[in-house]
Nucleic acid binder design. Structure first.
Lengths: 228, 228
DNA sequence: GTATTATTAGAGTATATACTCTAGGCAGTC
DNA sequence: GACTGCCTAGAGTATATACTCTAATAATAC
């Protein structure tokens, strides 16, 4: 693998594990057993590394959230979208953690992320629209749909932060993909009142799959179930 | 005012304005025109200052979220809760921005914040319960209510981050209390489907008050409308 | 082979940051 | 007035961090 790609990969790994704030360029170089000079040959600064990682993340999500225009949505589609989005969040989980700081220190990133958000919101809204076309949820007026989409976005992007902060006091860092996907339970909770009679049971069954196993057993967490 | 209190106040102000990460203890001392030594006479370290600020924040929110047991809830109560919570978020807005890092660097804070979250979730759930008792919303089963409460919490705590990141590319820092309170619109959106016929119109009217004035005019933002 | 270009090492630097240490001032009290 | 306890100044420090510079090595082109 090219050194440049190795740097991106190692940075992502370290950022996810320890948080961007706690990972220096020297750490990254040391982790790869290359010199700082080498790292700076490939990237002008830390921001550039982060920006490259963001571009990958963006590409991934844009790929997943490509809504088919030629056919109605199915419940499988919905499941796929939810699973994919949370997979993406997991793989790039450092990103939302320090989002504000990152955007403040890089105008490019700020601009791109803003557009990215808008695309995501549009995609969510579109999914709602196609779900009502498919008879899964009742149709809703435009402005309610966009407010709902925004709430979905807020729940999705904040779910991980909630998990991390609500975790047992003794285990600061632990978090598993399984737990993260309980966010799907929360997202589907938002849709419950809008479900049509015909699909209600099916969606509720889907939601049930993601229900948190126990009400915060405080210590039973999987532990160091990190990325890899 | 005592130096100790001045330090807390100035820290809060600077943290809110520039983000905790961008404010050093030397900055705080310089801002107050006192020596670093003086600052460290009153606080052992930066974490201690942050912890003190958190205790104030906690006290404030706990005070606001004291739910009356002896009488039913009114719509005015609901408005008060929402307004107060967002006022609190505004006054201590640095806190949620760097929350994860802060909790990772101070076990005391981690533990306290976790308990704080649980109290808030309980309070939200209780508000839902009393609202259904008052006939404002339809009664819901226990576990739906708690999932809904969690969603309310997620929307509330993430709303400011959303605003900051979704803001126009050219103005990174600007944010006003008015905009922040549009979060109330989003929270009330969550409750729409559960409203009883008798209260539907009133709540919708309340919600309307917080509707974002324009769909992202991208540049019309109020600018440096900071705390003070 | 040689010239050129791309990559790498590694020592080094300027700056920042959290925090320490010593000396002294100032208020009250006897 | 001197003793005491609280407060303050300000120089100073150890460490970290992002990043640079030079020289050397590997790869490629001709």
């Amino acid at each position: 693998m090219k050194t440049r790609d190795k740097i991106i990969l190692a940075s992502l790994e370290l950022f996810n594990e320890r948080g961007e704030r706690n990972v220096t360029t020297n750490h990254i170089a040391a982790h790869l057993a290359i010199s700082p000079g080498n790292l700076y040959y490939h990237f002008r600064n830390k921001s550039d590394i982060i920006y490259e990682i963001f571009l990958e993340y963006e590409k991934l999500v844009d790929f997943y959230l490509d809504i088919p225009r030629d056919r109605p949505l199915t419940l499988d589609d919905l499941t796929f979208y939810l699973e994919s989005v949370f997979d993406g969040l997991w793989s790039y989980r450092f990103f939302h953690r320090d989002l504000e700081y990152l955007l403040d220190s890089d105008p490019r990133l700020r601009k791109d992320y803003r557009e990215f958000t808008n695309r995501c919101l549009a995609a969510i809204s579109q999914i709602f629209e196609k779900m009502s076309e498919a008879g899964i949820i009742e149709p809703q007026p435009e402005d309610l749909r966009s407010a709902m989409s925004l709430n979905v976005w807020l729940v999705i992007t904040n779910w991980m932060a909630f998990l991390k902060t609500a975790h047992a006091a003794d285990e600061p860092a632990s978090l598993s993909l399984t737990e993260l996907k309980q966010g799907i339970y929360q997202v589907l909770t938002l849709e419950i009142p809008y479900l049509t009679a015909g699909y209600r049971e099916q969606v509720m069954a889907l939601r049930e799959k993601y229900r948190p196993s126990l009400p915060e057993p405080a210590g039973t967490s999987v532990g160091t179930n990190q990325s890899k």
